[in-house]
Amino acid sequence: MTTDIDLEQARIFLDTEAALLDDQDFEGWLELFAPRCRYWLPISEGLDPEEELAIVNDDRATLDARVLRMRNPATYSQSPLSRTSRLIGNVLFDRAAPQVPGTVAVRARFTLAECRNRETRMYAGRLDHRLTRDELGAIRIVEKRVSLVNRDSALHCITFLW
């Protein structure tokens, strides 16, 4: 079964997603995810979130809670919120990813600058999206994996959304 998402559509989708995050429209971003989904940041190989320890490993319910938490000023690690600016590039279909009917695997690279409390940090890494179309034809995220180049370093607070 093929999923009707071409590379240009995938690229626009990823850029749109990035814009929502950088614009701090977290609720709008959340709507991009499928009702059953995973959002995760691996520490090691990034092969199996059920078997590996990860930096973040959210199912849909946890992701909902994460976004809700961002809006509460008592979430001190995001109060004030991080300002972010990210560039997405090198967007390709991931031919090496397992075939899952009804989905496409898209790989990309990102660089991201984050500023909070007047301190700026740079991050970079690989993005892996598994995308599908919902019953209305909208593109939805089934899985989003964010593999930081420094994932095995001791990290500062990274509770902003990736």
Partner: peptide, 17 residues
């Protein structure tokens, strides 16, 4: 594995605070 990621990680719900 999930519980530690949820709390005791730089991107968790607990440790960052």
């Amino acid at each position: 594995l999930k519980a530690i990621a949820w709390w005791a990680s730089a991107g968790g719900f607990g440790q960052p605070e």
